[in-house]
Amino acid sequence: MTAPITCRAAVQRLWGYLDHELEPRDQSALDEHLAFCLRCCGELAFARELRRLLRTRTSVSLPGDAQARLEAVIDGLEVGDVAARHDE
């Protein structure tokens, strides 16, 4: 049995919990807290959703004009050194 923790301390550890980055002691303290605290269970579910939001709802498309300019840069790339000669 680990020392009980407050809701505030529990909430501060939720992301570490989801990231699997907690020390074993913190992990069990949180597990014990979650076993009786419904509110923090809700917070945990919400943190999980937030994490998912960051992972999945952040696609960015490459605009056509930027793509054309960047591909031109790629075409002009020289490997190794600026002094490297063109192959054309």
Binding site: V60, D75, L77, V79, G80, D81, R85
Partner: peptide, 28 residues
């Protein structure tokens, strides 16, 4: 300066291919 660098055309092509393929993700 890296003197006398002989540019491997395969390297150049490999980098260009990699860059083109990764461009959308890199831009994102």
């Amino acid at each position: 300066a890296v003197l006398g660098v002989v540019v491997e055309t395969t390297d150049r092509a490999a980098l260009q291919q990699l860059a083109r393929q990764e461009l959308p993700r890199l831009y994102a």
